[in-house]
Amino acid sequence: MRKISCMVLVLVLVLVLALSGTAFAAEKLKVVLVLPGKMDDLSWNQSMYEGMKNLEAEFADKADFAYVEEVYDVAAIEPALRDFASEGYDVIFGHGFQFMEPILKVAAEFPNAMFALGTGFKSAQNTCIYDVKLDEGGYLMGVLAAHMTKTNKIGVLGGVDVSEIYRGHEAFKLAAKTVKPDIEIQEYYTGDWRDAAKAKEGALSMYDSGVDIMWHSGDGIGVGAVNAAKEKNKYILGNISDQYVLAPASLVSGTLYNWTSVIRQILNDILNDNFTNRENKSYWLTVPNEGIKLAPYHDFEEIVTPEIKAEVEKTIKALHDGTLKIPHFEK
């Protein structure tokens, strides 16, 4: 008899614990970040991964975070999103332009789940878009590149010409032309986000034709461009993450993304029930809100003259106080 009552007691205890556990967990937001590439790509994916990772402590009792990598193809994205939505994830981040159509489709099927799209232009009631004003970053790089070039030939290299990449490239070219109207600009899109060898070949070809400084707009292909600069001993400007370690003697500077504040904003809006009823569905990473920053000069601290640094600072300041208006580039 004692044995049985003992067992019953244990059973009840286990049940209570289990139930309280689920009840407790249900109050937490379940957040998943779906990355199209690897979380250590030194670029687009890594910046977002680290941005969210930074928030784990802050949201420790409000949200649980999960990460998934390498969901690249549109054919793979849709089922992945549907999986997470049906497994009870409350917030699903799709970190890339190719997530746009799948998110809209799955968001309609799961009206209670919330979705955040990394760059794009379409949204629904339970989705939002977080995007980067790469036109501001590109403009900054254009100013720097145009001042640094000795051959009067600069280059810009990117993955697919969509969305923020296109805006960044156009602003880069505009800025360079503003600084030096007679400058020659070469531009190359590889057409995909991760064929680094193709990007390297493109960069080598530009350097061979006299380009002495280039900006790449990031993603997996950026590693290829930096690699080419190292091999040819020419200058390169990075994007998204600080790629100094890849080529200390070539990497002049670059733009850095910090997604943390944008993610915090989105999560807080969801927690405060201010998400689905928003008018404006976009969250922007900009120079003024310090989501985009200038990377340190590292070994180029001495080589970049104070005059050039002043020009760059002037541009940053103009972006901050709104005196510099970059036209809106739309395809």
Binding site: G37, D41, K200, G220, N227
Partner: peptide, 12 residues
């Protein structure tokens, strides 16, 4: 031979 690193899907 070309990139001196390994990247996922690098064969493309």
């Amino acid at each position: 031979g070309f990139m001196n690193t390994f990247l996922a899907q690098m064969v493309g």
